[in-house]
Amino acid sequence: MSLQFSVLASGSTGNAIFVETEEHSFLVDAGLSGKQMEGLFQHIGRDIGKLSGILVTHEHSDHIKGVGILARKYNLPIYANEKTWLAMDGLIGQVPVDQRFHFDMETVKTFGSLDIESFGVSHDAADPMFYVFHHNGKKLVLITDTGYVSDRMKGLISNAEAYVFESNHDVQMLRMGRYPWNIKRRILSDVGHVSNEDAALAMSEVAGDRTKSFYLAHLSQDNNIKDLARMSVTQTLESRGIIVGEQFDLYDTDPKVPTILTAV
């Protein structure tokens, strides 16, 4: 078996990504209820109880809502950095000490033939970080919840086979929408979320000869729609000389329906 993944849920209402190899499987975030998470696993034909652990990116509720529930019910290890653990205190309930593990930022943890690399992002959380999965020469990058993609991030995530990449909002929809200005300002800031156009610009710089796919993720339910995100990203990429469908493919993600379990 190769490195496989499914974006179980992605959006303002909850986020969760499943990643597996022949030896190990991980859930990255669990931002939905325990019951919803169980339904998503049934959808892809996988058993939550067989997970090697839950990797937490940051403490916002759309990423940790079901973390404590699943960990207690299925006796799962939870991995997060120290500041995120402190920020999660009181938000995920009591977790036994033997299920609490530290995964420091800018480090690599090895599980058999799978290396998981953590890296920092720019978001208004305690110490937000995302992950790169390395397995048998293949590379899967997960990066959402960042206000921008720095040169440091680009260097670390470049030339992966597959990306789950934030394309959170259309700037015009956000500016004209119902959100109060302080929320708009937060989303547009360097510690907010990446827009469709900025996502495409970053994608054009990190894609390489190995790159096969980008999954547009964490779309705002109020300030974006799938067709608009895909169109905006495609047009911006074309302005940089990249033709979608030739160099790589674009895929949608959904707040409720998992993507097909796909090999990297």
Rank of each mutant, 00 (worst) to 15 (best):
107 T>M: 00
172 Q>P: 03
73 K>D: 14
96 P>I: 01
187 I>M: 09
229 A>Q: 02
257 V>H: 03
170 D>M: 03
163 Y>C: 09
124 D>T: 01
239 S>M: 08
178 R>L: 07
152 R>Q: 05
150 S>N: 05
87 A>G: 03
1 M>P: 07
142 L>C: 07
199 A>T: 06
199 A>K: 04
46 R>A: 06
26 F>R: 10
230 R>A: 09
227 D>C: 11
195 S>H: 12
238 E>I: 13
164 V>K: 10
79 Y>P: 00
42 Q>H: 06
21 T>E: 14
165 F>Y: 08
39 G>H: 14
47 D>W: 12
255 P>I: 14
170 D>R: 00
114 L>S: 01
169 H>Q: 11
218 H>L: 15
214 F>N: 06
258 P>D: 07
217 A>I: 06
211 T>G: 09
119 F>P: 01
133 F>G: 11
99 Q>Y: 08
222 D>L: 15
171 V>M: 13
140 L>I: 07
5 F>A: 12
3 L>I: 08
262 T>F: 01
165 F>R: 11
217 A>R: 09
108 V>P: 04
30 A>Q: 12
183 I>A: 13
173 M>T: 05
186 R>M: 14
24 H>P: 10
261 L>N: 08
52 S>A: 03
35 K>C: 03
236 T>G: 11
241 G>T: 04
169 H>S: 08
256 K>L: 08
251 Y>G: 00
204 S>C: 07
49 G>V: 02
182 N>G: 10
137 G>S: 03
251 Y>E: 02
220 S>Y: 09
180 P>F: 10
227 D>V: 12
